[in-house]
Simulated assay, not measured.
Amino acid sequence: MAIPEEARALTRFQIALVILALACGGFGIGTGEFAIMGLLPDVARTFAVTTPEAGYVISAYALGVVIGAPLIAILGAKSSRRSLLLVLMSVFAAGNLASAVAPDFWSFTALRFLSGLPHGAYFGVSALVAASLVPVYMRARAVGYVMLGLTVATLAGTPVMALFGQYLSWRVLFFAVGGIGALTVTLIWLYLPRDRPAAGASVSRELIAFTHPQVLLTLTLAATGFGGMFSIFSYIAGTATEVALMPATMIPVIMVLFGVGMNVGNVVGSKLADMSLMGTIGGMLVFNVVVMTVFGLTAANPYLLCLSVFLIGCTFAAGPAVQTRLMDVAADGQTLAAASMHSAFNVANALGAWLGGLVIAYGYGYAATGYVGAILSFFGLFVFGASWLLEKRAAR
């Protein structure tokens, strides 16, 4: 599924429009995924369920991402990238609009699962398209610009939609996200040139990606290396109020600091990755270990907690680098490998939140989630070392 030469010859302005269209979809996906977390009590009241039961809709969406990313990449192996992106975002838009009018809890849960199916494949294919439109030395930055839609969503889209959801109705969130999805479909239709499936494209060719040890190592690295961020962030409200003794009114400020950190990390990390891909991945894993350990040691200090939260957001700097790394090692199975990155990201979400909750349940306290994050990042560093050694051995 290669972008034709005429697409590669686009002007800078035309390339910017394509990347803007792709990032718009990322903004919608990020807003829909994260804003619902702050509206679960409202969802619970609407459907007469408990808040923990309402949390099933988040799990359903994450399950959709994990299943949908590889499945859609395989089923769409013979499709053009433009066609696949249009279908994916159309399904996303329809799923969110339907979620907004869901009549009962179980239909709502099923629709959240449906809305999650296109998530990983959309980001994976978008990253491949963006990277194909720029020179090799700018690939990671192009991938970072697409991911910027996701990180801006954590900073702007999520709090704004959560606010509207609380004062109006949580259903407003999904009407808005569905509208963003429809806008993305329009922008992709207008600005992304038509392309043709790659010669010889097939399901078996995509599945070859999972026979490459480097692909499996990189996905394992993503599932563990990002897990530390989620082990901390999932319980940051409790850490702030019960360990640092901060008022609940400061929690939105902490969320903003985390969002700012993610955006800074995404922009800086993508530039660093274009200079040294493996150096950025390895360096950020070391950074993770240090920052998350410091978080555990200093969580009782409100000022140091805020600084740590910002720096933990910055650990997203590894995102564009890991996504680009998958493109490099996947050979002919790039679509499947790139899409599976977001399955790994959601595995990291589940793993980090589970392990973080475990140490809290066993009485080690909220601050101990920092040590969980450091251990996960250290394991990711071990996987990175294995990948680096294997690559050096193959080169020799």
Score class of each variant (00 low, 15 high):
residue 139 R to C: 11
residue 139 R to G: 01
residue 140 A to N: 11
residue 140 A to R: 00
residue 141 R to S: 07
residue 141 R to L: 07
residue 142 A to D: 06
residue 143 V to Q: 08
residue 144 G to Q: 12
residue 144 G to L: 12
residue 146 V to M: 15
residue 147 M to E: 06
residue 148 L to Y: 05
residue 148 L to H: 02
residue 149 G to M: 07
residue 150 L to F: 14
residue 150 L to D: 04
residue 151 T to K: 09
residue 153 A to W: 06
residue 154 T to H: 11
residue 154 T to E: 11
residue 155 L to T: 07
residue 155 L to W: 12
residue 157 G to E: 11
residue 157 G to S: 08
residue 159 P to D: 03
residue 159 P to R: 03
residue 159 P to S: 04
residue 160 V to T: 00
residue 163 L to S: 10
residue 164 F to E: 04
residue 165 G to H: 11
residue 165 G to E: 04
residue 166 Q to E: 13
residue 168 L to P: 11
residue 168 L to T: 01
residue 168 L to C: 02
residue 169 S to E: 03
residue 169 S to F: 00
residue 171 R to F: 08
residue 171 R to W: 05
residue 172 V to H: 02
residue 175 F to P: 04
residue 175 F to N: 01
residue 176 A to I: 08
residue 176 A to R: 01
residue 177 V to S: 02
residue 179 G to V: 08
residue 179 G to E: 01
residue 179 G to H: 00
residue 180 I to M: 02
residue 181 G to P: 14
residue 182 A to F: 05
residue 182 A to T: 02
residue 182 A to G: 03
residue 183 L to R: 01
residue 184 T to F: 04
residue 185 V to L: 01
residue 185 V to M: 05
residue 187 L to P: 01
residue 187 L to I: 02
residue 188 I to K: 03
residue 189 W to D: 03
residue 190 L to N: 00
residue 190 L to P: 12
residue 191 Y to Q: 05
residue 191 Y to F: 15
residue 192 L to M: 05
residue 193 P to K: 01
residue 193 P to C: 01
residue 193 P to M: 07
residue 195 D to G: 07
residue 196 R to V: 12
residue 198 A to D: 07
residue 199 A to F: 10
residue 201 A to I: 12
residue 202 S to W: 13
residue 202 S to C: 10
residue 203 V to N: 07
residue 203 V to R: 14
residue 204 S to C: 09
residue 205 R to D: 11
residue 206 E to F: 09
residue 207 L to H: 10
residue 208 I to S: 09
residue 208 I to N: 03
residue 209 A to T: 10
residue 210 F to R: 10
residue 210 F to C: 05
residue 210 F to K: 03
residue 211 T to S: 15
residue 212 H to G: 09
residue 212 H to F: 15
residue 213 P to I: 04
residue 214 Q to I: 08
residue 214 Q to W: 13
residue 215 V to E: 05
residue 216 L to A: 08
residue 216 L to M: 15
residue 219 L to E: 07
residue 220 T to W: 12
residue 220 T to I: 12
residue 220 T to H: 06
residue 222 A to L: 13
residue 222 A to T: 15
residue 223 A to H: 14
residue 223 A to D: 10
residue 223 A to R: 12
residue 224 T to P: 14
residue 225 G to C: 15
residue 225 G to S: 14
residue 227 G to A: 15
residue 227 G to M: 15
residue 230 F to Y: 14
residue 230 F to N: 08
residue 232 I to R: 06
residue 232 I to G: 11
residue 232 I to D: 03
residue 232 I to N: 09
residue 234 S to D: 10
residue 234 S to T: 15
residue 234 S to E: 10
residue 235 Y to L: 13
residue 236 I to V: 08
residue 236 I to E: 05
residue 238 G to I: 03
residue 238 G to Q: 12
residue 239 T to G: 13
residue 240 A to Q: 07
residue 242 E to A: 13
residue 242 E to C: 03
residue 242 E to N: 11
residue 245 L to T: 03
residue 245 L to K: 13
residue 246 M to H: 09
residue 246 M to Q: 01
residue 247 P to E: 07
residue 248 A to T: 08
residue 248 A to Q: 09
residue 248 A to D: 12
residue 251 I to E: 04
residue 252 P to N: 00
residue 253 V to I: 09
residue 253 V to M: 12
residue 253 V to H: 11
residue 254 I to Q: 06
residue 256 V to F: 11
residue 257 L to R: 00
residue 257 L to V: 00
residue 258 F to Q: 04
residue 259 G to A: 12
